[in-house]
Nucleic acid binder design. Structure first.
Lengths: 210, 210
DNA sequence: GGGTATTTCACATTAATATGTGATTGGAGG
DNA sequence: CCTCCAATCACATATTAATGTGAAATACCC
């Protein structure tokens, strides 16, 4: 028997989900609430296996609710429930230890399957969510070309700039004259199409040159 | 008809998968290879919809193969295939733009389903992989804190610094005197514990202040 | 109502950076 | 062999940035 708590502000949907889940073999709805105002006490009191958590709720939304839960309880499985696969919310939810993320339009049979999967330690996601999650990984900087053809020595100088070194310090560090440092930096600026140290540093970070 | 290329070094498994997929309605194996030595040319020549890519292969492994593919081709779907849900490989694969990640022990029917899902833009993952992916998100936490208590105006100035603006330009942009800009920047340096523009910019990037 | 922090501005001085115009050396490649 | 280019160094000059010191208006908290 999988024990479930439900957080959902829409009364119709709350009723519908309760009836669906509570009416299915192997599932039991312990309680349902319209917001997360007392989530910590409620979770402690009912000790559920799985929490179905709507994202868009008044007062305390689902993400905040999740954070509150995870401050006290790392064990209970939290399955986020939402209308949109909104990038920001997905990321925030997963970052804060959600165990799954499914859309409300999920068909009932599939939803029960997802709850079971969450309860058994899986990570149920609807396909569109999974696609987004993967996209986040790959967007966490692809090589993205643009190496600007910096020479080895120039890369070295740029690295020092990023570390906040002055020309004088770089010269000392690299055992070359300060004018040579200037010369390198002039070249770097040309190649990066910038004309100040801080622009070069910013570009180095943005384009992952360093 | 979903066109598939297969990379798999084990001859038995390569044969088995070829027969399974090629023998199923709606699927076609264009070719299969035992390593990724010529992956770029092969992908170009056959132009598949989906690539099944084993991770553990001699000479050029699946991750390297994936990287090579993504250098030239962002469109083709790559479904990673592996025996173990090894943390490092999962992360490397997803980071480099894999479209899915499934275990070899996946039952045949499920595998075909995953291929279909990948072809249609989904992100098929076996449950254990999805669990790991979520764990990565929640573990990649923590690098937060440190907001350095910058005031609104100071954040604004820092943003301009990051954009490569000079004091003069910032003053014009914010409709304040250049001395006020100096004043703000001095304060920012104190709060960030730096003493140059480029250090501030670097810190802004590192600590995700901007 | 008095402490605290933010935002604003001013003047002065030193340090660092940006730009221009050279020159020399040594290696890679047609 | 000769050209191209990276890497080195030099000198000159203008602009920017960093630091110090001080001050006034506004807003917030207790």
């Amino acid at each position: 028997m999988i024990k479930v708590i439900l957080y959902e502000d829409n009364p119709q949907l709350r009723e519908g989900l309760t009836m669906l889940i509570d009416g299915s073999d192997g599932f039991e709805i312990l309680a349902s609430f319209k917001n997360c105002s007392n989530v910590i006490q409620e979770v402690e009191a009912f000790n559920p296996d799985v929490i179905l958590m709507d994202i868009d709720m008044p007062v305390v939304n689902g993400i905040e609710g999740l954070k509150l839960i995870r401050q006290k309880n790392q064990e209970v499985k939290v399955l986020m429930l939402t209308v949109f696969d909104d990038n920001k919310n997905v990321f925030e939810a997963l970052k804060n230890g959600a165990n799954g993320y499914v859309l409300k339009k999920t068909p009932p049979a599939k939803l029960l399957e997802y709850i079971t999967e969450a309860a058994s330690g899986g990570a149920p996601m609807t396909s569109s969510i999974a696609t987004q999650v993967l996209k986040m990984f790959s967007e966490v900087q692809i090589p993205q070309g643009e190496d600007y053809n910096l020479s080895d020595r120039e890369k070295e100088v740029l690295q020092h700039l990023v570390n906040g070194y002055s020309y004088k310090m770089i010269a000392a560090e690299m055992f070359i004259a300060i004018d040579t440092v200037r010369s390198h930096i002039k070249k770097i600026y040309e190649k990066l199409h910038v004309n100040s140290k801080s622009e070069a540093v910013a570009k180095a970070f943005k384009d992952k040159i360093v």
